[in-house]
Design a binder for these strands. Structure first.
Length: 424
DNA sequence: TCTCCGATTAGAC
DNA sequence: CTAACGGTCTAATCGGAGA
C-alpha cells in the first residue's frame, strides 16, 4: 500500500476582517472599540477585540447595543463592501504566492495547501508577515490534516495570543491532540452550529473529543451523513476536498430590507428592478442563464403587531434568459400579482434558479429569434465594471426613492474611487 | 412502492 | 429625535404527489 504524506492544509483567516479593513485607513481607530454593521445598519457583523470584550455579540441588532455603545464610546460603521472586496483580493493574491493550490473559501478566509512544504512554522509566519506588511491586514494561520482540523487549529491560533497567530495541529503528539479536543466545546467545531450543539448534548457529546470518539452507526443514524463527515475529518481522514476553482452558482438571490416601510407599488417595482439588474449581472458574469424567476415580498417580520404577508411567486420561463429587461418585465408582473395595498412592506427580492451555462451555439441560434438584448447587456456590464455598479441603469430603476437602505456611517471607498480618497 | 419535487432545516460567513 | 433586527448560498432531509 502506498504511504501518503499527511496533508498540511493551512487555513488563513483575517482577524475581525471588516473592522480591520476600516482600521487600515484609519490608524487613529486602532484602539477604539468599534463594530461594522450589516446592510441597513441593522446588525453587528464584525467586532474589534475591544468591542468583544465589552460584551457586544456577533449578529446583535445595533439598536440593542446603543446604551452600551454610548456608555463606552463604541464606534459603529456601515459596511463598505467595495472596500472589503478589494482588500480581500489583495490578501488572496499574496497567499497564492505560497502555494499553487489555494481555495478562497470566503471574503476573509483561504485554505492554502502546504503539503510537502518544509518549515511549516516559518512559512506560516512568513505568510502572516507578508500579508501584514503589504496590506496591513492581521491574519492567523491554522494547520491541520483536514479542513475541519485546519479550521480548529486556526481557532486556537486566534484565541491564544501565545501562539503568535500560528497553530500547527500536525505537530502535536496523539496525547496533545486528545487533550486539546477535550478542552474544546463541540460547538467550536466547523459545521456544528447552535441546534446541533443542543442535540449532540442530549447524546452526551459535549466536546470535540466526544464527537471524534462517538459511536459511528449511532451518530450516523441520529445526525446524518454531514456529521459523519465531520467526525471522520476530526479523525484525520479528509472528506472535504480543496476546491480550487469556484463553481458556478446554482441559485442567485438579490434582496434587501428597505430603509423604511414601503406601501406603494411603483416603489416596490423600482426596488425590484434594481435587484433584477444586480442578479442578472451576476448571472452574465458566470456566463449562465436562468429558467425560473421568483419574486418575494415581505412585511416587517419583527413588528408582530402589524399584519404579516410574505408572498412569493415563481415563473418557469419557456427558455432560459439572462436579459435584465426581460427578467424585469416578469418581475414587475409577479410583483403586481402579489401586491396588496393594505400591507406595509419591509423587504423584497428576486431569485433566479434552474441556472445553466450559456453555450455558444445556444446564444448564436436563439439571439435573432429572441430579439436579443445581448449586445446591450454586454455594454451595460462593461460600463458598470469600469465605472462602478449603478453607473448605467435600465428602465425605471432609481426613479422612485423611498426604499434604499440606511447607511449612515459608511467610510470612503479608499481603494476603488479616486474621488473618495481624502486629500490630507 | 418507488421516485421525484418542493419546502424546510441547518450551517457558514 | 422619530424607529430601530443582514444577505447569499449549499446540502441534506422530509413529506406528499404522482407514476
Amino acid at each position: 500500500m502506498a504511504q501518503t504524506t499527511t496533508q498540511a492544509l493551512a487555513l488563513v483567516d483575517c482577524n475581525n476582517f471588516y473592522v480591520s479593513c476600516e482600521r487600515i485607513f484609519r490608524p487613529d481607530l486602532s484602539r477604539v472599540p468599534m463594530v461594522v454593521l450589516s446592510n441597513n445598519d441593522g446588525c453587528v457583523v464584525s467586532r474589534s477585540n475591544e468591542a468583544k470584550a465589552l460584551g457586544i455579540k456577533m449578529g446583535q441588532p445595533w439598536f440593542e447595543c446603543k446604551a452600551l455603545a454610548e456608555a463606552h464610546g463604541i464606534l459603529a460603521m456601515s459596511s463598505n463592501y467595495a472596500l472589503y472586496a478589494d482588500l480581500s483580493n489583495r490578501v488572496m493574491r499574496i497567499l497564492s504566492d505560497f502555494s499553487p493550490q489555494c481555495e478562497v473559501y470566503s471574503i476573509d478566509e483561504c485554505f492554502v495547501d502546504l503539503t510537502g512544504t518544509p518549515g511549516l512554522r516559518e512559512v506560516s509566519y512568513a505568510m502572516r508577515e507578508r500579508v501584514g506588511l503589504w496590506t496591513g491586514m492581521p491574519v492567523c494561520v491554522g494547520i491541520g490534516p483536514t479542513k475541519t482540523l485546519a479550521k480548529l487549529a486556526n481557532h486556537v491560533a486566534k484565541k491564544h495570543p501565545r501562539s503568535r497567530g500560528v497553530f500547527n495541529y500536525n505537530a502535536l503528539t496523539h496525547a496533545q491532540k486528545t487533550q486539546l479536543l477535550q478542552r474544546l466545546p463541540v460547538g467550536d467545531v466547523w459545521g456544528v452550529g447552535r441546534k446541533l450543539t443542543q442535540r449532540l448534548a442530549q447524546h452526551g457529546v459535549n466536546t470535540a473529543f466526544d464527537l471524534r470518539e462517538a459511536h459511528i452507526p449511532t451518530l450516523r443514524s441520529a445526525f446524518g451523513v454531514v456529521m459523519e463527515k465531520t467526525q471522520r475529518e476530526l479523525q484525520e481522514t479528509a472528506c472535504i476536498q480543496l476546491e480550487e476553482v469556484a463553481s458556478d452558482k446554482k441559485q442567485i438571490i438579490s434582496s434587501r430590507s428597505f430603509g423604511g416601510m414601503v406601501t406603494e407599488l411603483p416603489v416596490l417595482k423600482d426596488a425590484l428592478s434594481s435587484f433584477v439588474a444586480n442578479a442578472c449581472a451576476k448571472l452574465r458574469a458566470q456566463k449562465s442563464h436562468a429558467a425560473v424567476i421568483q419574486v418575494f415580498l415581505q412585511t416587517h417580520r419583527f413588528r408582530k403587531e402589524l399584519p404579516q404577508y410574505m408572498p412569493s411567486l415563481a415563473v418557469p420561463l419557456p427558455y432560459p434568459t439572462n436579459d435584465t429587461l426581460e427578467v424585469n418585465r416578469w418581475a414587475a408582473h409577479l410583483c403586481e400579482h402579489m401586491f396588496k395595498p393594505e400591507y406595509a412592506y419591509k423587504k423584497a427580492g428576486v431569485m433566479l434558479s434552474e441556472i445553466s451555462p450559456v453555450t455558444y451555439q445556444q446564444g448564436d441560434l436563439l439571439e435573432a429569434a429572441l430579439g436579443g438584448n445581448q449586445k446591450l447587456m454586454q455594454a451595460v456590464d462593461s460600463l458598470n465594471d469600469r465605472y462602478g455598479r449603478g453607473a448605467v441603469k435600465v428602465s425605471t430603476q432609481g426613479a422612485h426613492a423611498g426604499w434604499q437602505m440606511r447607511q449612515e456611517r459608511k467610510s470612503p471607498n479608499y481603494t476603488t474611487s479616486w474621488s473618495e480618497v481624502p486629500l490630507v
